[in-house]
Design a protein around this nucleic acid. Structure first.
Length: 466
RNA sequence: UCCCCGGUAGCUCAGUCGGUAGAGCAAGUGACUGUUAAUCACUGGGUCCGUGGUUCGAGUCCGCGCCGGGGAGCCA
């Protein structure tokens, strides 16, 4: 028995006339009085299913084949033949169909061969990967992850596994989830009445990480080019199509690099992974273009072939001030850009991805490098139409005195950052990095408008099912 | 957390002025057919989110609660 994936069979790797075995799940069954049934079988290896011809002569035709419904699991052995129908070039004439797993009650099987809303599919997250859409997302997600690793690897970047559990209680990027083994009902108390975290598992307060950046900087100042790719956690009560409590992020960090090299890397990375997904997942991308977002292929091709616009924050303010567009939030230098402003810049002014750089220091994090003007920092955001911020990054402050000043201004405890400050004491060099939101990238690529539908099991406020 | 919108058959939805429940798809049965999310006919399928109220009468109107979606803020 030679088991083939449907991707291999449809990819022309199996000669006609050969006897093969495929395994998968039934999508639909159509019966013909000509003495055969058509069963479309899907195994997830490609977007397209394989059509199985089930002749009435099969010993289990009456007893089993005629009762197959969507979702049944099959192992089929037969001869690969040229199709005499339209819609496919090859099909499998079954000599043997083994029902590996039945659907016990077809009427209540949640994945009917029909259109379902994504909202509904979220409520059956364990079965939704069997749909065209979510299956395609899963393959595109994998393809993008591989492309990112490959691109960074080929450019000399080392993947560093930064910790998920962190002790720094103030990384400055949002609310944290506590990690604790203390008894919630009767926690140990300090003499002052507070909770005594010295008795907790790690002997101190710990949290899930909101970013691997601070840790990866340490490896950057030893291996020169590094990156993280892992899960990240934010305990914010964000209920939007662009936020998750658990999401994945890619954070490259480059030594001896400034903000402009950083922006160049971001642009090259995005272009390369878009190019790869267009070529390696053409089947799934064609589906997204047909059913989800007509422009998604064209959009990626355009991005791959044109340079990213670069815009200074101060220039952007000027553009917004001069624009005839009316904004709910008035525009003035020093303000943080609102969604409506970012959307105008990316969707109307540039009509494509743009890199915004050199923001006022007051609205950015303590670790971003102070520019010579004394009032802006070397920060950058990459904005894309439809999603908004897909990348946030900066050149890091490598000068200890200036870093300390920023820690003080931000009211942070310097002692808690001693190891981070050490990096500025021992062989400090200019370095820069950014965070790429993986789900937002998938969302942008596929046109799937909600990040909850591009991660297998989304975690959101009041949402940790499955 | 705030602002909108929604919750009716397995799914997607309609439901008029407050008068006692409908369609499409799915499922089952049959017809037809090398079919393509086939087509046609028939059949079964309902705690109208929960709760309290107004009313002779509530899916429909009002209060409260729960859940979901979109947008905002935060950010990736």
């Amino acid at each position: 028995m030679s088991v083939h994936t449907i991707a291999a069979v449809l990819g022309g790797k199996t000669p006609l006339g050969q006897e093969i075995t495929v395994q998968g799940w039934v999508r639909t069954r159509r019966d013909s009085k000509a003495g055969l049934s058509f069963v479309t079988l899907h195994d997830g290896s490609s977007f397209e299913p394989l059509q199985i011809i089930a002749p009435a002569e099969l010993p289990n035709y009456q007893g089993e084949v005629l009762h197959l419904t969507a979702g049944c699991a099959l192992r089929v052995t037969g001869e690969l033949i040229a199709s005499s129908g339209k819609g496919q070039t090859v099909e499998l004439r079954a000599a043997r169909i083994e029902v590996v797993g039945w659907v016990e009650d077809p009427e209540t099987y949640p994945i009917a061969p029909k259109a379902h809303s994504f909202e509904y599919l979220r409520s059956v997250a364990h079965l939704r990967p069997r749909t065209n859409s979510i299956g395609a997302v899963a393959r595109v997600r994998h393809c993008l992850a591989q492309a990112i690793h490959r691109f960074l690897h080929e450019n000399g970047y080392f993947w560093v596994h930064t910790p998920i559990i962190t002790a720094s209680d103030c990384e400055g990027a949002g609310a944290l989830f506590r990690v604790s083994t203390l008894d919630l009902v009767n926690p140990p108390r300090t003499p002052e009445g507070g909770i005594d975290f010295s008795q907790d598992f790690f002997g101190r307060e710990t949290f899930l990480t909101v970013s691997g950046q601070l840790n990866v900087e340490a490896y950057c100042l030893a291996l020169s080019k590094v990156y993280t790719f892992g899960p990240t956690f934010r305990a914010e009560n964000s209920n939007t199509s662009r936020h998750l409590a658990e999401f994945w992020m890619i954070e490259p960090e480059t030594a001896f690099a400034d903000l402009y090299a950083n922006a160049d890397l971001a642009e090259a990375l995005l272009k390369e992974i878009f190019r790869v997904v267009l070529s390696e997942r053409a089947d799934d991308m064609a589906f997204f273009a047909q059913r989800i977002d007509k422009t998604c292929i064209q959009r990626l091709e355009q991005v791959v072939n044109s340079p990213f616009e670069r815009l200074d924050y101060s220039e952007a303010i000027g553009i917004l001030e001069r624009s005839v567009q009316s904004f709910a939030f008035p525009v003035r230098w020093g303000m943080d850009l609102q969604s409506e402003h970012e959307r105008y810049l990316a969707e109307d002014y540039v009509k494509g991805p743009l890199v915004l750089i050199n923001y006022p220091k007051e609205i950015k994090s303590f670790y971003m490098r102070l520019n010579d003007d004394g009032r802006t920092v070397a920060a950058m955001d990459v904005l894309v139409p439809g999603i908004g911020e897909i990348i946030g990054g900066s050149q890091r402050e490598e000068r200890l005195d200036l870093l300390d000043a920023r820690l003080d201004e931000s009211g942070m405890d310097k002692m808690a950052y001693n190891w981070y400050r050490d990096l500025r004491r021992y062989g400090s060099v200019p370095h820069a990095g950014f965070g790429l939101g993986f789900e937002r990238t998938i969302s942008y690529v596929t046109g799937m408008s909600n990040v909850r539908d591009v991660i297998p099991f989304p975690r959101t406020p009041r949402g940790a099912d499955y």
